[in-house]
Every structure is written in structure tokens, then in C-alpha cells.
Design a protein around this nucleic acid. Sequence first.
DNA 1: ACACCTTTTTGATTTTCGTCAAAAATATTC
DNA 2: GAATATTTTTGACGAAAATCAAAAAGGTGT
Lengths: 232, 232
Amino acid sequence: MSSTSEILDIVLRSSLGKIISRDRIEKVVPFLRLKHWEAGTIIFSEQDPAEGFYVVSKGIVKLLRYRADGREIVVHFAEPTQSFAEAAIFLGRFPVTAVTDTDCELVYLPKSAVMEHLASDPEFSKFLMQLMATWLERLVEQLDTVVQNDASSRVIRFLLNEETPESKKSETRSVQLHFRKADMAQMLNMNQATLSRTLRKLQEEGLIKVKGRSFQLCDPKRLEAMLLPPLE
Amino acid sequence: MSSTSEILDIVLRSSLGKIISRDRIEKVVPFLRLKHWEAGTIIFSEQDPAEGFYVVSKGIVKLLRYRADGREIVVHFAEPTQSFAEAAIFLGRFPVTAVTDTDCELVYLPKSAVMEHLASDPEFSKFLMQLMATWLERLVEQLDTVVQNDASSRVIRFLLNEETPESKKSETRSVQLHFRKADMAQMLNMNQATLSRTLRKLQEEGLIKVKGRSFQLCDPKRLEAMLLPPLE
DNA sequence: ACACCTTTTTGATTTTCGTCAAAAATATTC
DNA sequence: GAATATTTTTGACGAAAATCAAAAAGGTGT
């Protein structure tokens, strides 16, 4: 299962594979580990010492913070080909907790391999910084979304952000959710009941159609316009 | 004013100065620029192409996003010795807007100088990544704070986070604000009036004392306990 | 197709916070 | 130190969303 060639394949297909040469990847592959994780397992916890980072091969990993009151603050859902916790190896600790949301397969890249590679390949360090910069951008975006003060705006914004580039080109624009609506509510910092009601309202207004976990954006222009200030 | 030795001094005192050798800094100093900025000036706007980053020498720089409705989402207040927008040179664009909150003096480090240095000094790339990782941590922390759903918790959390290590050791624990209460309210995603009322409430409960921009934490233990779930 | 479990929706009620506007307090300038 | 401008506090009110609990819908396995 966890053969060298399989790991190679995963890394090549991940975002890392797009920047690092095949040669270099082949060299580090022997130091990487592929592992299966059952749904609901804690991969690491906030403040744990960090000795490496991960690439998702299969499944969804939920990155979050646990509140003292048991509530969860979801930072991100990591999907296949994405890596996560890159920054942690530079902080020395994980700033969030990672839990498998479904059964998963993850490649683990130990810090030592990364650091060595960093010294020998300036391109790699640029790439890592780009990755981290993307995380920063994502977090700023999320902060912005979550702070939006009415529920509809947050939902609309989420949907527009979540839309894939393919969908944007196609005729029937849609968003496919890879996790529960309850999770979505968490990400948007609202009550599950409020999300439900908000979605109903948006449907009644003919802006979207909801069917389980798929959302059709019936009127993208009007959706975008709703994020702008009301005309007065 | 903007003499080479002055710039050298600022960079040495900044967080960059702590990691990069004096030799190396001296080499790049001729490529850096020190500039004065009047209060309320936009340094760069969200999505502007990024060709360098900044170190604050004097004053406060507000990093934020403008909403379509004119509201501001404050991401951070950058204070002297701090650098900002490092990540932007890897993204190619600024993810936030930067506005001088007071009169400022800033050193500008052009991307070209950074990139050159990056190739020749692996220590520097590690340092830059640490800087960016710190930003990430800060953003996660802020997301967590802002999402806290009641005003008191947000305020308490902010105060505890804002406390300096020195204060934590000292007898009279306190926090000194470097910007207006209105700004603080923005950071905490609440109305200025709400912040005012919340502070009053916390004072009445004997938890803090407020005098202008300085806050005394009378009962740090109880403050921390308030972030925990209520006993039932 | 049934029973079982999970997720989502809905209703009724309460609470918290935003809004607006005016007054008070605090800084700043001359 | 009076006068102006800026910042903060306070009050009255309304609106939006949280909460709790129960019903409905959707999945899964046998």
C-alpha cells in the first residue's frame, strides 16, 4: 500500500509536485510516510510541537481550534492535493488542531527533509513562501467573511469564494460542499438554524437552489451585487 | 534625514536586525529607502501589485480591508520595529490595505533586494518564513478572537493577548493601547458604543480598571476563567 | 422496506448587540 | 485657560441572530 512509487505519485500530483522537479522529489520520497487515518482522529493538537507537515491524498482534514466551551472554530477544510501545517515547522508548534473529517490518507513530510531541501534549493524556499502567503491570504479572506455582519452576506460570500474556476466558466454555476451544513455554519460563525433559515430565504428570492450539499447559483450577478452597499 | 546610517540603524533595531548579520544588512542598505508618511495616507491598497515590503520606524500603520459599504475590517496595527507585507511579495499583490494611523516613518525593502538575498542566504529564507508563520499564527488567533460570540469574551481575550511579557511578570498587570478605543472596537468587530459599555461592565465587576488608553488587569485569574465555560 | 441514526429544518422565545443622536469627557490649539 | 476639535460615553429603541426543543428529512445497514 504505502509503496515508494505511490507516495511519489501523490506528491507529484499535489501542489508541491507542480514546483519541485521530479528528480528532487524522488530523492526525498524515501523519507516520507504515507499513512491511513480513520475519520474523527486527531492528527495533531494546537500547541503540539511540530516536526513536519502533511499532504492530503484522500479525504478531508478539518483544521480548527477548540474553544474551552467545546465549540469549534473551523479555519479550513483541507482537500486532496492540498498540504497543511507548512508554517508550523517554522513556528515549532501547530497553531491549530487537525482532525480527519472522513477517512483519510496523508503523506507526512518531516521537518528535517524540508530543511535540508530548503538549503539546497532556493526555488523550493520561494515555493514554500508562496504556499504560506496563500494561507495568509486565505485567512485574511476568511476573517473578512466571518466579520461580515449579516448572515446572508456571509453565506453569499462563502458560496462565491467556494466556487471552482470551472463552475465560473460554465453555464450552470454551482458549488459542491464537501462537508456538512453544520460545518459550513461553523465556518461562517453562525448557528446551524440560522444558516438553514438564510438558505431558505435566498432560495425564496430565487438567488440559489439548494439540494443536499449542492448549491446552484441561479443569479450570480445579483448575488455579487448583494455584497455591495444598498442603493440609497 | 534619510541617511544611510539612519536606515542601517532602523533595520538593525527591527526584527530583521535580530537575524541577519550586520555585514549583510550593510550591503543592502543602499537599496532601501526611508520615507516619511503623513497620518491618514494610503501606503498601498488591497490587490495592488506588490514590489516590496516595509519596516515601521515610527508611528502606527493600520492594515485593513475596506468593505464595499465603507466599513473597515482591521487586521493589524503595525508598530515600530515591526515589518509588514512580507507575504505580499510572494503573492505578487497586497491582500490588505495599509494606511498610516499616525505620522510615520517607514523603510521600504524592494522585492529585488529581498530575492537576491534569499538566494544567497538560507538563514534569511528561514527567518522570512518564521515571520510569515508568525503572521499566520496571529491571524488564526484573531479569527478565533473575533468569532467569540459575546462582547466581553472578545474584550478579555484581546486584553490578555495584548499584554506584554513584562507585564505578565510584574505585580500590577496592565495593557497600554497604542491606538484609539474606536480602533480597538474595530479590531474586535464590535460597535464603539458596545465596547464602551462592555468596558464599563468589566470595571463594575472589579475585573479591570480603565484610564484613557491604559488598562489595569485587576484580577487576571478571573479574567482567564471567564473564557472558560460557565460552571454548571 | 423497515428500523435506526444522523443531519437539517422549523417554530417560539429571549438576548445581545447595532444604530442614531446627544451629552460628556478628553486633547489640542492659539 | 478659553475655545475648538476629537474621542468616548450614555440612553432609547429596534433588528438580527442565538437558543432550546421538537419535528421532518435524509442515509445506512440488515
